[in-house]
């Protein structure tokens, strides 16, 4: 069972759904207030969606200076898993934990509807249980989802396979290269605009988002298998 910290900022509004989705996947999920600096031995940290600090100045720009971000940054630098969903993605970009930035949707409208996506990378803690190239339907709900990066950064993202999710069929917000989610070079920090926590059960219209949370637990199980083999290997040598 993974310990999953869901960070709550003033203005977060997807924190409860995210906590529920992580618990439904079998994780020991709990809230951490943005003024706290202790992640309570979290295995993974999730920055949920919402409108932290009213999106004042720029989405995520002020949340990025919350006390908890120092702990989240230390956790990320140490290789710990971090997921930013929607506003959480914006915060991770503002904090410099992910490359690029998220700007106003190309057609200015706030979009709240399901979109089609393709999973481009499965070697992250949050996409390990998907198939590469698999197509999903997940809801988006954002006004600032147009991912941008300079041309060199964009080329590096593509060359290193750091694009995690891409819009297919249509690009709703004008994002560069149809990007809906990216990870850092270390692949432990992931940011996505769609909301997997809003589609993790049939009663919500589908469960394409469930494996984002199940991936964490699956990875944990795989690590245990690895530990047992190692123990077994030592035993055989003795």
């Amino acid at each position: 069972m993974q310990r999953v910290a869901v960070v709550v900022f003033p203005g977060s509004n997807c924190d409860a759904d995210t906590l529920d989705a992580a618990r439904a996947a079998g994780s020991d999920a709990y809230y951490v207030w943005h003024k706290d600096t202790d992640l309570q031995r979290a295995d993974a940290v999730i920055l949920p969606g919402g409108f932290s600090y009213g999106d004042y100045l720029r989405s995520g720009a002020i949340a990025r200076f919350s006390p908890v971000l120092r702990a989240v940054t230390a956790h990320a630098r140490a290789g710990g898993a971090v997921l930013g969903i929607c506003n959480g993605f914006q915060i991770l970009c503002e904090a410099g934990l992910l490359p690029g930035a998220l700007m106003r949707n190309a057609r200015l409208k706030f979009l709240s509807r399901p979109v089609r996506l393709r999973v481009e990378a499965t070697d992250t803690p949050f996409t390990a249980s998907y198939e590469r190239g698999e197509e999903l339907t997940l809801p988006i709900a954002h006004g600032d989802g147009r991912y941008v990066a300079d041309s060199q950064t964009a080329a590096e993202l593509e060359a290193n396979g750091q694009v995690v999710l891409r819009y297919v069929t249509e690009n709703p917000n004008g994002s560069l290269h149809d990007i809906a989610g990216v990870c850092n070079a270390g692949r432990n920090v992931v940011g996505i605009m769609p909301h997997p926590e809003r589609r993790n059960a049939q009663v919500l219209g589908g469960q394409d988002g469930a494996r984002v949370f199940l991936s964490l637990e699956a990875r944990n199980a795989t690590q245990h298998v690895g530990d047992l083999r190692a123990v077994d290997g030592r035993h055989l040598r003795v």
Binding site: L57, R58, A61, C93, E94, G100, A101, M103, V148, D150
Partner: peptide, 8 residues
Amino acid sequence: RLLANPVT
């Protein structure tokens, strides 16, 4: 540090 985003 805050008022402008160096990326955009």
